[in-house]
Design a protein around this nucleic acid. Structure first.
Lengths: 192, 192
DNA sequence: TTCATTGTATACCGAACGGTATAAACTGTC
DNA sequence: GACAGTTTATACCGTTCGGTATACAATGAA
């Protein structure tokens, strides 16, 4: 692993544990085994480092998600596919996933939220697209697509956090059964 | 309003908008119309100020919630009562509510999460208590109380954020119908 | 009046912050 | 070997950070 990648990895580790603002550039450089000017050789600023981190990890995720969100006439199947992408990504990149959620819910005027905005926007548009397509088939859904999509995203995120809370980071592992149960609960409630 | 209260109010405003770490003590003092030593006369540190802010606003909420979470044989009714307390509080203290959520999801080793932990713990215990009591009546729920309570908290929080996202801060106003619809969705899914 | 308590202001502290100027070492190409 | 471009280290910049020493008003009780 080259220096650039090692810096990104270290930054992820520290931002995940203590948050962007609480971590100094100095510490990131030291823990990466380089000095500060080296860090600034690769990234134009601390904020630039954060942006790079988000896009480098977020882009592959959004591409996979885009492929999963093509509606093929079965809402449950499509939602499961989307949730599966999230689950896969959470397994591969647990710390990034949790960091993303933290920034998703952070103060609107903070730097971290500004940085994560573009990713959040695209994520929401993907899920909205699913419900919009489904609303053509299922009339009773019409007009509530935004509510449902935000609700679905929140529910999946929530499940991630729950897992993270109870099983610690190494086990951010969501099984196929869990995915189906989650989507089923979203669609039919906790009773059935 | 005395200086102490004005400092708390200013801190809430700034923490809500930009986050705890990004706001300096200097700025809080200036915007409160006092100087730094005055701030340190009332609060022993910046972190102490945050703690005071959280407990002063959080305590009344938790007391109300405790009263609402007494299980009287009807799960839906009890969940509605709990959600109603959250909704009322969100209407009265919108910025605090959103700040609370942000800290709820923030990095585990950060100061802000450490500060909000006791409140989070008590909140979770209240809701868990409801599902535990209900599990005695409804056997099929047994063993899934933790999952349901975290799910319920997340769903309500989610709704708050959704409102905040779409209507901006002044309108963090959740109607009785919305509360019932939310609980109903939680219990029976989005179809019914 | 005296006295302690509460509350406020001026001015300052050392440390850490994000960021950079400068130059030396390394790398591959010709 | 000469050279250009890349990569690193030393040492420093100004600014802001959280926090405080000191002193001075204001207040109410004795």
């Amino acid at each position: 692993m080259d220096n650039r990648e090692r810096i990104l990895e270290t930054a992820l580790e520290l931002f995940y544990a203590r948050g962007y603002d609480a971590v100094g550039v100095q510490e990131i450089a030291e823990k990466s085994g380089v000095t500060k000017p080296t860090l600034y050789y690769y990234f134009k600023s601390k904020y630039g480092l954060l942006e790079e981190l988000l896009t480098s990890r977020g882009e592959p995720f959004l591409e996979e998600l885009h492929r999963a969100c093509v509606y093929r006439g079965d809402l449950k199947e499509t939602l499961c596919a989307a949730a599966r992408v999230v689950a896969d990504f959470a397994r591969k990149e647990p710390k990034f996933s949790i960091l993303f959620v933290a920034q998703y819910y952070s103060a609107r005027e903070s730097e971290v939220y500004q940085a994560v905005r573009p990713l959040v926007f695209r994520l929401q548009k993907e899920i909205e697209g699913v419900f919009n397509a489904a609303a053509d088939d299922l009339g009773n859904m019409h007009g509530r697509q935004l509510q449902f999509s935000l609700g679905f995203i929140g529910l999946v995120i929530l499940y991630l956090i729950m897992k993270h809370e109870t099983e610690e980071i190494k086990g951010l592992d969501i099984s196929e059964q869990e995915i189906e149960a989650l989507v089923h609960q979203f669609m039919h409630g906790i009773y059935s």
